[in-house]
């Protein structure tokens, strides 16, 4: 029996929320990056699910997923570079301490 599409989408939604929770509620900068990665993964999953259940077969979904993964990797690299820089300068990785832009 094939799984119905809503179930798949619900699962990716749950994954997305977990990633969001990681972003919003953890104080460590790397945890935020972890959360972002999880969110991106969930979005990719969404695309593949829709590709799977689309009426006409087309490669667009797969293409998108591939490109998304590539860009996510680039972004993760830069982000982690930032974390290292910030750690070097401020000697901390807690985002709540990086509040120089407060009004």
């Amino acid at each position: 029996m094939t799984t119905p599409l809503p179930l798949l989408l619900g699962m990716s939604a749950a994954l997305f929320s977990l990633g969001l929770m990681a972003v919003l509620s953890r104080r460590h900068a790397i945890f935020i990056l972890i959360g972002i990665e999880i969110m991106l993964t969930a979005a990719n999953l969404n695309f593949i699910a829709f590709w799977r259940y689309s009426p006409q077969p087309q490669p667009t979904g797969v293409m998108f997923a591939i490109f998304s993964i590539a860009i996510a990797a680039a972004e993760a690299a830069v982000g982690l570079g930032f974390v290292i820089i910030v750690y070097r300068h401020y000697k901390t990785t807690e985002v709540s301490k990086l509040n120089k832009l407060k009004g």
């Binding site: 790397i30 990056l33 972890i34 990665e37 993964t41 990719n44 593949i48 699910a49 590709w51 799977r52 979904g61 797969v62 997923a65 591939i66 993964i69 590539a70 996510a72 990797a73 993760a76 690299a77 982690l80 974390v83 290292i84 750690y87 990785t93």
Partner: peptide, 29 residues
């Protein structure tokens, strides 16, 4: 879901590069 290639790419990139990068950063910081 039938997108085996994407799965393999996922493992290569995410697990092989991103996760490792994260671990390295953790170690550095």
């Amino acid at each position: 879901l039938g997108a085996e290639f994407v799965g393999l790419v996922q493992i290569l990139v995410y697990v092989g590069a991103v996760a490792v990068l994260i671990v390295f950063t953790i170690l550095l910081t």
